[in-house]
């Protein structure tokens, strides 16, 4: 068990003394290997706060989060004995807006910033940077450029490369594909599935795109108003009736299939995952 949430509550203090409760009684377990998890839920439902708990950026108000055997509670930092930094190398978190973390003169320096903080030597870090920049779909030529002259999508890729270069065991991404064009989005999702398949690492992605959830995820978590309301397989999620209550959507492929079933007045014997699967099914029927 890599990460374990036990009755985690988290509230932000507010000016008038009342507290805004961002997480309510979260119980959750995440495996170290082989999971491809998508985290969905409407804006403000606590998704980002939840992932910030996963590498001890914030501490729970009550309850505990155990990350690789290290228990993090509300008073953990005050005791001052627990080193939180090594955890952040093992659980790599990519923030939503890349402009929040790029600061160096060149892309290269920015990518090696993370690894060097965790004690990787300069040469090794540069070697890693040259590798990961290709993984995120940019040329090695980009390493010499200034991060501030890049487009939004390129900045995003560079910030993801900066986390990948840390070689985390678990990769957590907060809306990695927002603001990217369809091709860029598909390329990145392919990269994440590659990391998941080839290295057998757990990947956690926050997304609003139900197609991504349906196509890639092995497990889906749904947040609603600070509570974890669903934890299971995506196919089962989309056949429940709660989708609308949680302000979610149905993946395109499912609505197409349902439409076809209705129009042709037939019943397919399985729910297709991709458009190709649907072709085969339709061919069978015709």
């Amino acid at each position: 068990m890599a990460i374990k949430f036990e009755q985690v509550n988290f509230s932000y203090p507010s000016f008038d003394g009342t507290n805004f409760s961002a997480l309510k009684d979260i119980n959750l377990e995440i495996n170290e290997f082989g999971e491809f998890i998508t985290l969905i839920g409407e804006t403000g439902s606590g998704k980002s706060t939840l992932v910030q708990h996963m590498n001890a950026l914030v501490r729970p108000t009550t309850g505990s989060v155990t990350i690789y055997g290290i228990k993090i509670e509300n008073d953990t930092k005050k005791k001052g004995k627990v080193k939180l930094n090594p955890l952040r190398q093992r659980v790599g978190l990519v923030f939503q807006f890349p402009e929040y973390q790029l600061f160096e003169e060149t892309v290269l320096k920015d990518i090696i910033f993370g690894p060097k903080n965790f004690g990787v030597s300069n040469e090794d870090a540069i070697k890693r940077a040259k590798e990961v920049i290709k993984h995120v779909g940019l040329d090695e030529e980009y390493l010499k450029r200034s991060p501030f002259n890049l487009s939004g999508g390129e900045k995003k890729r560079v910030s993801i490369a900066g986390i990948l270069a840390m070689e985390p065991d678990i990769l957590v991404l907060d809306e990695p594909t927002s603001g990217l064009d369809p091709k860029g989005r598909d390329d990145l999702l392919k990269l994440f599935t590659d990391i998941h398949r080839k290295l057998n690492k757990t990947v956690i992605i926050i997304t609003h795109d139900m197609n991504t959830v349906y196509k890639y995820a092995s497990r889906v978590l749904v947040m609603n108003d600070g509570s974890l309301v669903y934890d299971g397989k995506p196919t089962e999620l989309f056949s429940t009736n709660n989708i609308e209550n949680w302000n979610l959507d149905i993946p395109d492929i499912i609505s197409i299939t349902r439409q076809l079933e209705e129009r042709l007045n037939i019943k397919f014997n399985s729910q297709p995952k991709t458009i190709e699967d649907l072709f085969i099914l339709v061919k069978e029927v015709i």
Binding site: L57, V58, R88, F95, G162, I163
Partner: peptide, 13 residues
């Protein structure tokens, strides 16, 4: 605050 969190997740303490 957000930047501090983002840099903290890159190993800045």
């Amino acid at each position: 605050n957000k930047i501090m969190l983002a840099q903290a997740s890159r190993g800045v303490d």
